[in-house]
């Protein structure tokens, strides 16, 4: 486990949001999802940076879709979590669950 790298907290959230959105995963919707489900409002700068980083790590990939008039005729970039992205999420979940084990009661006290 020593050399294994986990996605950061924000990256995990982004990955999960992308998975949730399925076909509809492009940046404005991801931002919306993060706001609605995680109560986290993100600047678009932070979001694109995270998506870029995940793309470089091979955890997401994107494809271009045709332009529509609501966007001034500009193209649309749809994101998708790759196999290694899903693996990373699973690993991180497993690691967290391991760490949580036996602590539920203690942490639930207050």
């Amino acid at each position: 486990m020593g050399n294994k790298s986990y996605p950061g907290e924000f990256e995990q959230m982004v990955l999960l949001a992308v998975l949730q959105l399925k076909e509809d995963a492009y940046a404005p919707r991801v931002a919306q999802e993060l706001e609605q489900s995680a109560g986290r409002s993100v600047s678009r700068g932070a979001l694109y940076t995270a998506l870029d980083r995940l793309n470089k790590k091979g955890m997401v990939r994107w494809s271009i879709e045709a332009a529509t008039s609501e966007r001034g005729g500009l193209p649309k970039r749809r994101f998708e979590v790759t196999g290694s992205g899903v693996e990373a999420l699973k690993d991180s979940r497993a690691a967290l669950l391991n760490l949580w084990r036996g602590l539920e009661e203690e942490l639930a006290r207050d």
Binding site: Y26, A27, P28, R44, Y48, I64, A67, E70, R71, G72, L74, P75, K76, R77
Partner: peptide, 12 residues
């Protein structure tokens, strides 16, 4: 393309 798509997102 990335720039254009970001501009498109912001436009929308």
């Amino acid at each position: 393309l990335v720039r254009d798509s970001i501009l498109g997102d912001l436009w929308e």
